[in-house]
């Protein structure tokens, strides 16, 4: 299963943890990690035509460009990415306001509280695998 995955989080401990959890569940062998949202954005925009990521795990609280700003920057490509790129917000915040705000972005497929657990990984996997565009 080659589910192309991005991990965006400024916290290196968080990135390592999520990557290992995904690997332990056999979620994907194709995982790119970014400690800066700006860097991730550049990469995504460059790859979007040929091979955009199937899944993006996005942290919210980051310096310079935070998760919301990243989502705002993606808006011009929204139609192009719809159905192809699924963004999951992965945050340590428990604030309900974030949940509400997330609903306003059509590219956001869900919000997960850190740490992500096995059940959540499996649910995402089966949901994406069920869609005709994904998986071989």
């Amino acid at each position: 299963m080659q589910m192309k995955t991005y991990l965006i989080d400024d916290d290196d401990l968080g990135i390592y943890l999520t990557e290992q959890l995904l690997r332990a569940e056999g979620f994907s062998n194709c995982i790119s990690t970014f400690q800066s949202a700006t860097e991730a954005l550049t990469t995504l925009v460059g790859e979007k035509k040929a091979a955009p990521p199937d899944v993006v795990f996005l942290d919210l609280n980051m310096p310079v460009m935070n998760g919301w700003e990243f989502l705002d920057a993606l808006k011009p490509y929204q139609d192009e990415l719809a159905g192809r790129c699924h963004i999951y917000i992965l945050t340590s915040s428990l604030a309900l306001s974030d949940m509400e705000k997330a609903k306003r972005y059509t590219l956001v497929a869900g919000l997960i509280h850190k740490p992500i657990d096995s059940e959540e990984i499996r649910a995402i996997h089966s949901r994406l695998a069920g869609e005709p565009n994904n998986g071989e």
Binding site: L13, L17, T18, H113, K114, P115, I116
Partner: peptide
């Protein structure tokens, strides 16, 4: 909660 979430993970 950020370091706590990592610890749990």
């Amino acid at each position: 909660r950020a370091p706590l979430a990592n610890a749990i993970g």
